[in-house]
Design a protein around this nucleic acid. Structure first.
Length: 293
DNA sequence: CCGCGGGCCTGAGAGC
DNA sequence: TGCTCTCAGGCCCGCG
């Protein structure tokens, strides 16, 4: 589910509850997530403070006073809820959408800020791991991760270099977290539409030319940055699972130009195309075959 | 290197 | 109502 804008929305919601606060209690209700919770998970957290809550690609990183970093990933269906005071975790409690959601409250943090933070994940593709002091950069989740798309050092030259000699499709390359961190199926489709580029185009056609990036590479980087910034401003996209930490919905899904819009008229002004769905690498792609070349 | 298929899990929606 | 099937915002592995 969550891509960069959704994870950033979650980070902003969790920060007031977690930054500067200590873990008073940690309850690992279901340790069998995508990867099992580390041994002594609760013991390593309780009593330590969160010095900062960061995001790296689709990962949330809580730096701790102990020197550890708590690495969290939402997988496809993970969400966090922040409630004031002690949480009622029984079925049907107010932070649940339905009574049966309670069985998916897998990890619960009681923070010294007075907030309770609840991690809920029906599919359990999400996970929480711990990296010790100085272990974060070499951690398997971080070692090969690409640049942050909203940082200045992610520019057309950087993207173009990543496209050099790549026979894969543009879509596959943008989904590769080693090339750029945080894009997923929705925002790749949306960025390619904004840039007027076909998801099927060979990535190598955006490679460096005469020592510099091409206009297409510049357009694509600009499109990536704009769609992510717009989506963050909207609180992300709520399709099935994503909620803000207060339970409210994001609303960027109303701004999708192509994602899940097969059969609709292309929204580009003057374009007469119709949005099509195709399957690439086993996943749905949505694009306009008329204005995306 | 590349795409594909399968796997990890559960739930929602469509069609019958 | 219930069954079966497909699909889902992520990521990993092995195969050819």
């Amino acid at each position: 589910m969550p891509e960069l804008p959704e994870v950033e929305t979650v980070r902003r919601g969790l920060a007031p509850a977690m930054e500067g606060a200590r873990f008073l209690d940690v309850e690992a209700r279901r340790p069998d997530l995508r990867w099992p919770l580390p041994p002594q998970f609760a013991r390593r957290l309780v009593g330590t403070a969160v010095t900062s809550l960061r995001r790296r690609g689709k990962y949330l990183l809580a730096d701790l006073g102990s020197g550890d970093t708590l690495i969290m990933h939402l997988g496809m269906s993970g969400s966090f809820r922040v409630v004031d005071g002690a949480a009622d975790l029984r079925p049907g409690a107010f932070h649940h959408r339905r009574a049966k959601d309670a069985v998916h409250d897998h990890v619960v943090f009681a923070m010294s800020s007075g907030a309770t933070v609840i991690f809920n994940d029906p599919r359990r593709f999400g996970f929480m791991l711990l990296a010790g002091r100085d272990e974060l950069a070499a951690h398997p989740t971080m070692r090969e991760i690409g640049p942050e798309p909203l940082d200045e050092d992610f520019d057309a030259a950087r993207l173009a270099r990543a496209c050099n000699r790549k026979a894969a499709s543009l879509k596959a390359v943008l989904l590769d977290q080693k090339v750029v961190a945080g894009l997923g199926n929705i925002y790749v489709c949306e960025a390619l539409n904004r840039a007027g580029l076909s998801p099927r185009r060979k990535a190598s056609t955006l490679a460096m030319r005469d020592g510099g990036p091409t206009p297409r590479a510049r357009a694509l980087v600009a499109a990536i940055k704009s769609v992510l910034a717009d989506a963050i401003e909207a609180g992300g996209s709520s399709l099935r699972d994503h909620r803000r930490t207060d339970g409210d919905l994001g609303y960027f899904q109303h701004s999708f130009r192509v994602y899940d819009r097969a059969g609709d008229k292309c929204p580009r002004s003057g374009c007469t195309g119709v949005v099509r769905r195709l399957v690439q690498n086993g996943r749905s792609t949505f694009f306009c075959p008329v204005c995306q070349k």
